[in-house]
């Protein structure tokens, strides 16, 4: 009960912080412009003549690669740089409540950005008869993938006071999470180490996002995202405790 109240208070503060500066609006506008550009211009949404949002979702892993670390990079590095972490962690709450609270706030923010792409759904429904169940699954997968990237950013931002370093580190890790299951890489792996393809590819968000995107809600995929988020947040806690212990 108390834990929930603390998490809620931390999350509320974090969200208010996003919207107090123009960062939130800039981010949302860029996100919507880029998704629109890739869907309509690069993937040629109209020429496909398909009532599906595949052209829309296929870009998400790549868009998130840069946009999510941009949201998450300041989570802890800013706290450390400004010294507010000292204020926060001497208040009566545990470190994990603070970590979860801050994470949830950023995740909710990403969810809002994702929600604002709803005109896509309306468009495709107006033009044809898409499988709305699959679209819902794809949204869920996209949301989970954003959460995973965000958890990685959360972890890297705890590592350093410098937001730029935090951003680059998290892009690199997220890139690995994509590439491990990206067809060109898996094809290469098949030649080098045929037995290792599946174990490595199963670490990829691509692999799991693809299967959810096709409309298959497999527990294994959900468990993958949940455990990736859990692991990164746990590591964040370890890193923060490590800093405090000196």
């Amino acid at each position: 009960m108390n834990a929930m109240a603390n998490i809620k208070t931390v999350a509320k503060r974090e969200l208010v912080g996003y919207f107090a500066s123009p960062v939130a609006f800039v981010f949302i506008v860029i996100f919507l412009l880029l998704t629109g550009f890739f869907t309509f211009m690069v993937a040629d949404f109209f020429r496909r003549e398909e009532a599906s949002l595949e052209a829309f979702f296929v870009w998400h892993p790549w868009l998130y690669l840069f946009l999510v670390p941009a949201v998450g990079m300041r989570l802890w590095s800013e706290e450390r740089r400004m010294g507010t972490i000292e204020l926060l962690l001497t208040m009566p709450l545990t470190a994990w409540q603070a970590i979860v609270g801050k994470f949830l706030a950023s995740w909710a923010f990403l969810a809002l950005a994702l929600f604002l792409t709803f005109p896509m759904v309306l468009t495709v429904n107006y033009l044809g008869n898409p499988d709305n169940g699959a679209i819902f699954c794809a949204y869920l997968g996209s949301f989970l993938m954003a959460g995973s990237y965000l958890a990685v950013s959360c972890m890297t931002s705890a590592l350093t006071r410098n937001q730029v370093v935090s951003f680059i580190l998290s892009v690199v890790i997220c890139l690995f999470l994509i590439l491990a299951g990206w067809p060109p890489v898996t094809r290469m792996l098949e030649i080098w180490a045929p037995g290792m393809v599946d174990p490595i590819a199963s670490f990829s968000v691509m692999f799991h996002f693809e299967s959810i995107r096709r409309g298959v809600l497999d527990t294994r995929d959900l468990v993958f995202f949940a455990s990736l988020i859990g692991f990164c947040l746990f590591t964040t806690g370890v890193i923060i405790r490590g800093h405090r212990a000196g």
């Binding site: 109240a5 208070t9 509320k12 400004m82 507010t84 000292e86 204020l87 009566p92």
Partner: peptide, 25 residues
């Protein structure tokens, strides 16, 4: 606790910040 150099969340208003501190308490 008043830490050294009085760290604060710069993006909040004074009222918002004190409200946050009160809720944390």
């Amino acid at each position: 606790y008043l830490p050294e150099n009085a760290p604060l969340y710069g993006d909040m208003t004074v009222y918002g910040f004190l409200g946050f501190a009160a809720e944390m308490r």
